[in-house]
Design a protein around this nucleic acid. Structure first.
Lengths: 242, 242
DNA sequence: CGTGTCCTTGAAGCGCATCAATGTTGGTGG
DNA sequence: CCACCAACATTGATGCGCTTCAAGGACACG
């Protein structure tokens, strides 16, 4: 039973921009179905030219690159509302893979509808470009973290980012939000070893700043965490949703 | 004396896609002038909401982030044909700064014309999105380099990237192309110290793979360089030009 | 010529990776 | 119900790739 765009639960969250009734109708027509995938399932593979694009409706996942030597770079964590498959939709080939971490529900769009979107709904095309520019912005920040921050700074930065996103999505209750990833995922996102990631998380826990275990992240002192990371805690800008 | 889009020297390079006569006319209307900046001049600053967007017509520059602790992450080198100011144009605020390294000539566009582009020229809007997705792709690769490659692999990767781009732009003559950056710039791009970058470049020079000095990059053995980097040397896809 | 910028080289030390082993939990089958 | 196993978290020990510190060389420029 597919979710009607009209009643999409995501659009009510403060993180997302409003849509006009006409835009909602268009998205409903653009949406060809819904897909539920299990934890660990691949959603898109690097190099693939998928005919389908997605928006994460429920659940979380990761985007990652695999190098020839077998090492893995996690590019970002996928949260509800994230658009998946931009590169396939626009350039015809994914530059990274996407995999479900939890069970996920995905809105499915037809890649061939993209061009129609540009032709007949320029405001939606603009939103799509906004998302691409936003991803570029985020990857620039991530690159700065991996390149210039120490391990403890990088981990603090990542936890702040994740927490702000979780808060904007209404996932935080009493300073706790679900974060169903492995320490290895975070290590691969920051270019650190699993061992050092583990020890650094322990430091943050000992300092009573943030504790992440059993798939739950608890942030006790967001400002102190942001101070370590030398980043800010500004409210995230409202983003469009596809 | 501004360059007419009709005679734009960039479009003739193999790297760039063709434009229809109508598209050329539109771009000419969109273009409000030309700007020449000196080496070291700032073009856009992080956080700025510039009313102007640019395409690099001649010369080279760098995009970079500055962190609170004063360290700098170079996100990419700017080559002729690169679009500058995507984030300001789409999201209203730059996520990084852009600075000229050599003297540069920039085509200037009016930010307020962007919306008109989406409304009346969907194929140009698509091209803009293509560029954004392409940047995202590149930053993902860069992140993988900084996060997962050793110093010599990362430097080899960067030199291969730069060389492929230079070749597609017709800048390579006898295996040599201009690369007017400092070693510090490359170090900041890869999250390495200047000293180690210098020593690693010396290794590549000693092995007769690539030599970079006096603003010129000579690549003697592209394949061997790519082997070290564990990357490929595929021809770059033709990109749109704004 | 003095000063600034960039490149180069040597030496010392640390933040991190790697290796190794053990603990914990949940699932599975006999 | 317990033995077993797989996946993940944890902790200690060792060492290396890198950073940092320091000094000097090669230009270019006023």
């Amino acid at each position: 039973m597919a979710q009607k765009c009209e009643n999409c639960p995501l659009r009510q969250k403060p993180l997302f921009q409003d849509l006009s009734p006409d835009e909602v109708r268009f998205m409903q027509k653009f949406k060809v179905g819904e897909l539920v995938v299990d934890p660990g399932a691949p959603i898109l593979m690097e190099g693939s030219n998928s005919p389908q694009l997605f928006t994460a409706l429920r659940g979380m996942g990761i985007r990652y690159n695999t190098l020839q030597n077998g090492r893995r770079q996690v590019l970002s964590f996928v949260f509800p509302g994230d658009f998946i498959g931009m590169q396939a939709g626009i350039m015809g080939e994914m530059g990274h893979s996407v995999e479900a971490t939890t069970q996920m529900t995905l809105c499915v769009f037809d890649r061939s509808g993209i061009w129609n979107l540009f032709k007949s709904h320029p405001e939606r095309a603009f939103d799509l470009t906004w998302l691409a520019a936003s991803e570029e912005h985020f990857l620039g920040e991530a690159l700065s973290s991996v390149g210039q921050r120490s391990a403890i700074q990088a981990i603090a930065w990542a936890l702040v980012r994740v927490f702000l996103r979780g808060r904007a999505l209404g996932l935080v209750r009493n300073g706790v939000m679900p974060l169903p990833f492995r320490q290895q995922d975070l290590a691969d996102a920051l270019g650190l070893s699993l061992v050092h990631t583990n020890k650094t998380l322990a430091v943050l826990r000992d300092r009573q700043l943030a504790a992440w275990s059993d798939g739950e992240l608890q942030v006790n002192n967001l400002e102190a965490l942001a101070d370590i990371a030398e980043t800010d805690t500004e409210k995230l800008p409202a983003r469009p949703i596809l």
